[in-house]
Design a protein around this nucleic acid. Structure first.
Lengths: 341, 341
DNA sequence: CTGAAAGCGCTTACAG
DNA sequence: CTGAAAGCGCTTACAG
């Protein structure tokens, strides 16, 4: 039986490489890792052997030795929701392709399932954990003694001692109103989602502050809480336009609401942005980028949020203790708030 | 220095548990894994010790021994796109919480990045790989000698020897037309995305077959290829209604197109579903579930696709050789195709 | 029923 | 510059 007939059942080991190169495993290890003084010709011989066998060092063995695995766990509560994904991408970016590998776990908002996932991740000796929430309300911290650093993103941990990276929704509400005022609007209404959401309340707070600072009041003297859906945007718009015909701008708590508002205004013959401006929230391309007119929106920079969380996790793994951060939103302007000269 | 003062820097090991329970590591191992004959009282003692230390067995060490890591790699080319996510969730479901952990890698459609990720995953000794495409066109198989089973989902591998789990888009096109015909429609137009997409061409093929089988022809005698966006749906609708006023149904290649079609028909005063029916494709809730009227759509069952891929990967890991599968779509009916009596 | 020993694949002092 | 040996945390025959 010649060598070429032997089927390579298991991946090649360092021993295989060393044998082929005619050196000890110790030397092979040093050559491959560029460690210790290895003669140049020896190093080349080892590297060639490794190449020939397409040797990939067993990360499990390495992790066992070093105590570091180069893996992190990403725990999300709601993969389906569109907020997790950009955050997740940002985090992935921060880790870099191949340097650190990411375990993805979706707990589906179920505490039991979450516990199982955490258990599994800890067994796999991840170097750290990122916990991604699906709404901005504070969430209970992970149960149990977690021996590795944890960073919470989007939804902060309810424990202020934990590290949380969040979007500044109060600031986002303020930005939206300031933008509308910049466009020359004075009679601004606010249609938003369920009052049970911290995000809704925060944006109201920011909006109110900005209006007050400008000496203005909300049309209707209150926000219109309802649901996050288009149909609520449509219904509320009809009500507002009828009761407050002077309305010349609407700040919407989501792009879906914004989309409903645009459709209703179109039905009512109110021209956007000619006689009334509309701004949404989330900057959800699929909803905002092809409407008539295209919808200006507040963007929470979710990808950046994820990237910052990733960086902070690294710092924590390296022993420094990062602080919680609340990152600013930004306005992405499109035609629905374009001042018409 | 008392015991309680010693900080637990590293996670407890089996040795710690054994020591605390007053047995050997071998016995501790057997007790914890329910293996071999261990006296009941001994087992209890070990389990209590493990509990007390909140011992979690090091999966790396286990993996090193057994050659199985209980991890799989999920390689996606486009996390942002909305097709990957449901597939990913389905796969996660198939793996079960905590049993198998999933490494998520987004190659961003970049071959170099993909290679890096595969390399990293192989180093981590994943038991298998799932490759998720972002469009249904066949993709080149993974480069290099992959020593573990690979299952392609959504986008099949260009190599027919590989295992690919795909949605039957031809069948989906057929279903859409058959549904419209069931609703009493005879003059059916088809507005779809770029002809460069296999998905567009497949759905056309199915639609044409179903029309022919019913003795009908497409309105305009051809599909209207364009883009996947709302604006194309709007533009094409105006054109079709003008040139072919007899049109009484429109099959749309995507829900976004469908949404544009609905909006245009509304502008044109054509009543849906009264005088004309509309069906979309993708069953994208955010787009289809709150439109006026709500949009009937063809669903590719992506989550199920992912789940099947996960199951097939397991079978492959366990040594059986699964076959490629093309899974059926289904029609999710809403008001836009409701026959009006 | 229990434990000593070997070994999974690697790295790291330590001799030579 | 090179290699023998110990050890990371676990499991698995094999003695006792």
């Amino acid at each position: 039986m010649t060598e070429s007939e032997v089927p390579a059942k298991r991946p090649p080991t360092l021993t295989d490489v060393a044998k082929l190169a005619g050196v000890s495993v110790a030397t092979a290890s040093k050559a491959i890792n560029g460690r210790g003084e290895v003669r140049a010709t020896t190093r080349v011989r080892v590297l060639e052997a490794a190449e020939l066998l397409s040797f990939a060092p067993n990360a499990l063995a390495r992790g066992l030795l070093s105590g570091r695995t180069g893996t992190v766990g990403l725990l999300t509560s709601d993969l389906e929701g569109r907020f997790s994904i950009p955050i997740l991408m940002g985090a992935e970016d921060a880790f870099g392709a191949g340097q650190v590998s990411v375990f993805l776990c979706d707990a589906r908002g179920d505490a039991i399932r979450e516990k199982h996932h955490v258990q599994a991740l800890l067994s796999r000796r991840v170097d750290g954990l990122i916990v991604v929430g699906s709404r901005t309300d504070p969430r209970p911290p992970l149960a149990g003694n977690i021996a590795v650093p944890v960073v919470y993103v989007y939804a902060p941990s309810a424990d202020p001692k934990d590290i949380s990276i969040t979007a500044d929704n109060v600031g986002g509400g303020r930005l939206a109103i300031e933008h509308l005022i910049s466009c020359g609007r004075r009679n601004i209404a606010h249609i938003t989602g369920e009052a049970g959401f911290q995000a809704a309340r925060d944006r109201v707070e920011g909006a109110t502050a900005a209006l007050t600072a400008a000496g203005l009041r909300m049309v209707g003297d209150r926000p219109y809480f309802g649901s996050w859906e288009e149909s609520w945007g449509r219904a509320a718009t009809h009500m507002i336009v009828e009761q407050h015909p002077e309305v010349d701008a609407i700040f919407c708590g989501s792009d879906q609401i914004g989309r409903g508002v645009l459709d209703a205004l179109r039905d009512l013959g109110r021209e956007v942005p000619g006689t009334i401006s509309v701004i949404g929230f989330d900057n959800w391309e699929a909803i905002s980028a092809d409407s008539r007119p295209r919808l200006t929106s507040v963007d929470m920079n979710l990808k950046h949020l994820g990237a910052v969380a990733g960086k902070r996790l690294f710092e924590a793994i390296d022993g420094t203790v990062p602080r919680s951060e609340e990152l600013p939103c930004r306005v992405v302007m499109r035609e629905s708030t374009m001042p018409v000269g």
